[in-house]
Simulated scan of single mutants.
Amino acid sequence: MKDFSNRVTELFNIQYPIIQAGMVWCSGWRLASAVSNAGGLGIIGAGSMRPEILQEHIQKCKQATDRPFGVNVPLLYPEMDRIMAIIVEEKVRIVFTSAGNPTLWTAFLKERGITVVHVVSSVKFALKAQQAGVDAVVAEGFEAGGHNGREETTTLVLIPMVRDAISIPLIAAGGIGSGRTMLAAEVLGAEGVQIGSRFAVSVESSAHENFKQRIIQSNEGDTVVTLKQLTPVRLIKNKFYQKVQEAEWRGASKEELDGLLGKRRSKTGIFEGDLDEGELEIGQVSAALKKIETAAGIVQSVWEEYDSLKKSICS
């Protein structure tokens, strides 16, 4: 079924304008290939991978799907030269960059025939990404789990402002996990959606079962954005979050917060399943997620609801 086409599906050569976010400790080759095989765009999350592990996941993803997939690269992470060399060596055709300056690597990637998309949380950075030469922008609202803007601009407000500011394709993210929200994003000016939290609790997600169960048991108000002095993230409230909150309330320095966060907190929570001492990063839409589904089931459910609602509105 290839009766839908817009700038996002054409840019990535995919069936549906549904992109799976490159989430740390969730987005390995199994999830990425499953989403791509279902007609969306699967993304390997390089943020939680050493270079040699990333290379292994890329190679396995190429074996598991003959459809397009991409790699998400947080630009503030170490060993960036090696990561980019692997991406070129393995002939990855699509790269989503985030958490950093898009001018650093966009030209390098595009000179090698790679499609580049940058994740932003404000109009200011959307314009900078367009000026850097990226092919598309993901505008991610305050509802999201990661890459939250300090401005706290919600998706409902952010998408139309970014749409008015840029001419390149626009993908909406933050609080999107259904066909209804996909249609709403389109009305606001987006040409595709990036979904994180719902895929984080998929069968193919590499997240620990404890983390998945905690997400589907969560309720409205269980998540909060914190760590704004470092990199703002939305966390499920737990013992670790309470420690962060107490430190922030007494005016802890960046160095103290960085020490509290450590290098393994997200791995401890998301990948190893420690629900007390781990960093449980997830989007606000987690309160609406009540079951674990296959990635293919998620893609089909989102698309069918979107398609049905659009037809009913337009009829």
Rank of each mutant, 00 (worst) to 15 (best):
K311P: 02
I195E: 02
K290A: 11
T103S: 09
S33E: 04
G259N: 14
T155E: 08
I83E: 00
T226V: 15
R264H: 09
G40Q: 04
T181W: 11
V187Y: 04
A136F: 03
E191M: 02
C26M: 12
R163G: 05
L261C: 07
G70T: 08
S121R: 00
G259W: 03
D66M: 07
N37Q: 08
S167T: 15
G259S: 14
V134L: 03
N13G: 01
G149F: 10
V92N: 01
G175V: 06
S167E: 15
K212C: 06
D66Q: 15
T106G: 07
G40E: 09
P78C: 08
I19Y: 00
G175K: 02
G177C: 12
E151A: 11
G189M: 10
I282H: 01
R250F: 08
A46Y: 08
Q20N: 10
Q130M: 15
T9Y: 03
D258E: 13
R250K: 14
M161F: 09
A107E: 15
P78K: 10
G175M: 01
L235V: 14
Q217L: 14
L104F: 13
I215H: 04
V193Y: 03
C314E: 13
V88A: 13
T65S: 14
Y77E: 08
I298C: 08
L257H: 11
V162D: 05
H208G: 00
L183V: 06
T103Y: 12
G141F: 00
E191R: 07
A185P: 10
G273F: 12
D258Q: 11
D81T: 12
A126N: 13
S122L: 09
R82Q: 12
I282W: 03
I171V: 12
E256K: 02
E152M: 13
A129F: 07
F96W: 11
F240R: 04
F4R: 07
G273Y: 08
G145P: 00
A107T: 13
S27V: 10
I53S: 07
V285N: 03
D3R: 12
T181V: 05
D3I: 15
E277P: 05
F142M: 05
I176K: 01
Q63C: 05
G45M: 09
K291D: 11
A295H: 03
C314G: 13
E256M: 03
L76F: 10
I86C: 01
I114L: 06
L41Y: 04
D274H: 02
Q131S: 09
K228N: 13
I195R: 00
Q245M: 07
G145D: 02
W105F: 14
N210Y: 05
R264G: 01
R93G: 01
E279K: 08
Q245P: 00
G45D: 02
K2Y: 06
R180P: 14
Q15D: 12
G141C: 05
K237T: 12
D81Y: 15
I166L: 14
D135W: 12
D307H: 14
